[in-house]
Design a protein around this nucleic acid. Structure first.
Lengths: 336, 336
DNA sequence: CTGTTAGCGCATTCAT
DNA sequence: ATGAATGCGCTAACAG
């Protein structure tokens, strides 16, 4: 490890004081341009890197953001992580991972303990942890900044989301345009806001097409493949079978396709199937799945950038909405 | 955030010096049992948590391990992460994520920069970063501890792996026992040791069954679904079609099944397909995939525990081998 | 615009 | 077995 280059060494090399170096490093004002250049040159020449712990200790900041999650899809989370890391890198921040069990009675204890231990400067919340009232209340008490990704209540907090209801509505328009009128829906996990929004989009789509809502065509799910299987078994064995099934996510849609094939039905000739999320798997099953692409990586990046800005400026940002894309593939087709 | 409880406060409450509290906290010897108890009581009563940065600054340790990865399957990586976090939690360590581009010319720069910035006490390497000679050499220079998960050269380093060759061999035994003799193989990414091992297991399996090796039945792949599709297109259009295909991972196996179905072949009646990794997807496609389960979470945990031990004791551990499991499912069946 | 001083909270000598 | 003094590397508050 050799000997560490310290800020003092840089100061000496540049012929200024430690504090001036500190100012340059932290982009603080009140430094003449030429000294700034001189200091920067010394920093580069010595390949100086601030010691994170020292900076943190003296500055009363941890330079840490915590990413809270509860059993999300690995693909989704990895995208979010990549985005958050993108954002953190630009600002010398670190990210720590915080797997949590949202439903557990010790949920808040786990959070408190993590905060006490790691002292993050801010948190990024992913669904469904975005919607834990006790958590949000406590964070406000602690004056700890947080950004939410796709939270249920979007008016009141900083974060990022897509218009899920409208995306689901668009998907319904697609099915309707193919001639479908008996369209089934498998709901998502009841604890996720996304489930409500997507169901709402389904209903909006029916209404727009003048198709009466039929409760038999809507079944419970919980975003898992298995729940998709169960939902499909119900829907595909109805006396009057739906000609299309809109599952609230891709995993469930994969379950639907599995059941359909097992029952000897062709997809999409006998039944069209679509999902939501555009997971890699959606492209790997046969037939490739029609779905909605949600820019999860961008959402992670944006949430983190908002959070970092809020930490710096000590004031909260807005809820940002960003665009989604429909991916029309082979699992949906015209009414046969 | 109220006022922070410091070690000094605990010392005062317990009627001892800071140093004694420090000793108790760090499980150092030379503390009488009764004072240890008294100090611990004060720690609990005040709900004292050491300040990570202060501890790190004074102790010349970062309490950080870096997890290096390059574009792995999200499912695999999330399992490894969960295991590493499990291990870190028990020892007050933190984990940082380090996505890298192994092939890039700036790979080593990225690593150097990460190390200089974050000063991790150790690294956990995942394939194929386990096999970057320049990296390993540099880590030795820096005397930075690292643990490797499934590295190519297992003799020379600390880490954890399964016996992949034997697992692939077992899978071949399974296919042979079903009556298959024309068995195709789609290789993994050439940069991953796993590709070699699994191919070796394939060859060992052929040899054991007295089946001559046919180069036409082995095609290149790179672990991606698409490469599985390409491989299957070659194999399934051979004049003498294989009756079984062993893909070196699940993603490629999924590609094979897709192609088979597209060509009007039934799985497993017309062609058996198997993979490797037991990804969640392997259970979600139709038919469910026969594969090898690799205990990735355990591997993450074990690698991290080894690393933390090595950091503490300043000496390197061994390469540990842990068990795998064959998952026999519906994508393989008797030769029709 | 720049420098000086103090101290963040802890572990680490070296005493005793 | 325990304690007092010192400093890790940096930023903050103030001084100039």
């Amino acid at each position: 490890m050799a000997v560490r280059v310290r800020i003092e060494d840089v100061a000496e090399a540049a012929g200024v004081s430690m504090k001036t170096v500190s100012r340059v490093l932290n982009r603080e004002p009140n430094v003449r341009e030429d000294t700034r250049v001189r200091v920067q040159a010394a920093v580069d020449a010595l390949n100086y890197k601030p010691h994170p712990s020292a900076r943190s200790l003296a500055g009363h900041k941890s330079y840490l953001v915590a990413l809270l999650y509860d059993n999300p899809s690995p693909n989704y989370l990895m995208e979010v992580i990549a985005g958050v890391l993108d954002a953190c890198e630009t600002q010398q921040y670190n990210m720590m991972m915080c797997p949590l069990d949202f439903g557990s009675p010790t949920f808040m204890n786990a959070v408190e303990s993590m905060i006490a231990h790691s002292q993050p400067d801010g948190l990024i919340l992913t669904p469904p942890i975005t919607d834990a009232p006790a958590l949000l209340k406590r964070l406000d008490e602690l004056e700890l900044a947080y950004a939410s990704i796709s939270p249920r209540k979007q008016k009141q907090c900083m974060g990022v989301a897509i218009d899920e209801t409208r995306a689901a509505f668009d998907m319904m328009q697609h099915l309707v345009s193919l001639g479908h009128r008996r369209i089934g829906h498998i709901k998502g996990h009841p604890e996720h806001g996304a489930s409500d929004w997507r169901l709402q989009g389904y209903r909006d789509g029916l209404q727009k097409a003048g198709i009466p809502f039929d409760p038999d065509l809507v079944v419970d799910g919980e975003f898992s493949f298995e729940s998709g299987v169960r939902g499909a078994e119900k829907l595909l064995q109805l006396r009057e079978r739906p000609t299309a099934i809109f599952a609230a996510n891709d995993d469930m849609a994969a379950g639907v396709i599995g059941v359909a094939l097992r029952l000897g039905l062709r997809v999409p000739e006998d039944v069209s199937v679509c999902g939501f999320d555009n997971t890699p798997m959606s492209l790997q099953i046969y037939p490739p799945l029609t779905t909605v692409h949600q820019p999860s990586r961008d959402m992670g990046r944006i949430a983190a950038l908002e959070l970092l800005t809020a930490i710096r400026k000590r004031d909260a940002g807005k809820m940002l909405q960003i665009p989604y894309t429909l991916k029309l593939r082979q699992s949906t087709g015209p009414l046969g």
